[in-house]
Design a protein around this nucleic acid. Sequence first.
DNA 1: CGAAGATTTGATCTGTATCAAGTGCAGTGG
DNA 2: CCACTGCACTTGATACAGATCAAATCTTCG
Lengths: 253, 253
Amino acid sequence: METLRSPHYATPPKAAGFPKGWRLPFVRIFPASQEKHPPPVDYVGPPLADLAGERVFCSEFKYRKGIEIFGEGGHADEYVYQITSGAVRTYKMLPDGRHQINAFHLQGDMFGFENGVAHRFSADALVETHVRIIKRGSILDAMQNRVVSTKNLICFVTQNLQHAEDHMLLLGRKTSLERVAAFLLEMDERLAHPAMMLLPMNRRDIADYLGITLETVSRAFSILRDEALLRFDGNIQRRIELLDRHALAEFDA
Amino acid sequence: METLRSPHYATPPKAAGFPKGWRLPFVRIFPASQEKHPPPVDYVGPPLADLAGERVFCSEFKYRKGIEIFGEGGHADEYVYQITSGAVRTYKMLPDGRHQINAFHLQGDMFGFENGVAHRFSADALVETHVRIIKRGSILDAMQNRVVSTKNLICFVTQNLQHAEDHMLLLGRKTSLERVAAFLLEMDERLAHPAMMLLPMNRRDIADYLGITLETVSRAFSILRDEALLRFDGNIQRRIELLDRHALAEFDA
DNA sequence: CGAAGATTTGATCTGTATCAAGTGCAGTGG
DNA sequence: CCACTGCACTTGATACAGATCAAATCTTCG
């Protein structure tokens, strides 16, 4: 824990982060900083630092599957996160338990950029996830006098906004089959068109992302399988091979 | 048209802007600059200029009801817009005509901030609308060396993002009655809780904003009227008085 | 006044949710 | 190693919220 008390930041993000009740993940170990592999290390250099166009101090953390990284309404720590490996969901929740996942964040993605003092949404790890963390203030400090950096930063926020705009169209106006096709194409693109993709999220998370139920997601997958647009790798339903991306795009509106 | 050729920018935004086919608005006059009241004027000063913390050059335009300000996919002019009076919808469209309105922009709101060369969505005037226009580049130029301005600008984009996140929850997980209640409360707040509010948009626009049909919007209004949560001003169905904001908030999730 | 749009309301249809059951994989402990 | 247990996923039957189709009334404006 000593390295956590480095001069670069005082406490690990969400040091008291315990699994939340969402789906009662049976998780056992926290905080991640107690993990042995890899140990939290102070980190100096790109690519997160590229954002500011300067070398700024970062630190690395590990979150186990199902662990909350931060919670909606909680105090927004002064951190921005970049995923080294793994996957994260960010989501909002209604009082009665209905969920809406805003976005999935994969390797290389950044998230957690907020203005206010309270988090606008929750974030937790879908699988074991390593994140690099940078103090938000140090980005703005580092980019002082640098117009290029400002543009980079605005560009980052704008990318999130653009994704949200596309997703509003999906949530407001697409059919369930169109949603699932769009989801597959999005993941395919973000995973760089692998021959076989391993989805880090379960059917319920996909459903909460697409604004439908997990049964409807499952039925859509079955239809696309029967239409020979995709196939599962054996019995592992999260390993999917897209057989006809062009035809899949036709299913999307 | 002479004043349009001022040194501050070369061409009016969307100089060739004609009504689009959405609902075949029968509109007759364009460009707005040909209107007599008010004439386009070069404008120096706040509040748009406040964004950059400097005085920058602005110009004012007028758009008539139903007129497109810019179109999705079109060349993104180097402008940011602020509404002086009136109301604007920004929306995306699917090839088959399905719509999703991202946001309504009212007096004082800014919109049109984009990164790329192509507009990510369309914008058009719901009613006769006056906008102040600033060249995007001049904002970044003006804010050179000014961290405070950078924060302002990021804050603006983040506000849009926050609205989009809230709206994704609505579109993905709320019932039609919850959506309409949320819409009424949003408008009420943004219009500063007037005793009687005059909605600038019709039922179809509300529906396309909320991801439901216009009939469902109408039915929800009727339910809320029968429950004595709101009343219409005589026969003008767009003039609405909220009778019980607290109860309305209960209808929202 | 006449025509077109805006809104409401009713009847019916349907896509998706909900309820329910069964299979199979993964992790655990004996 | 295998059986046990819990979760993930699929599939089927049924219910229902909201879409669609339809029509009447009202509003607006030339």
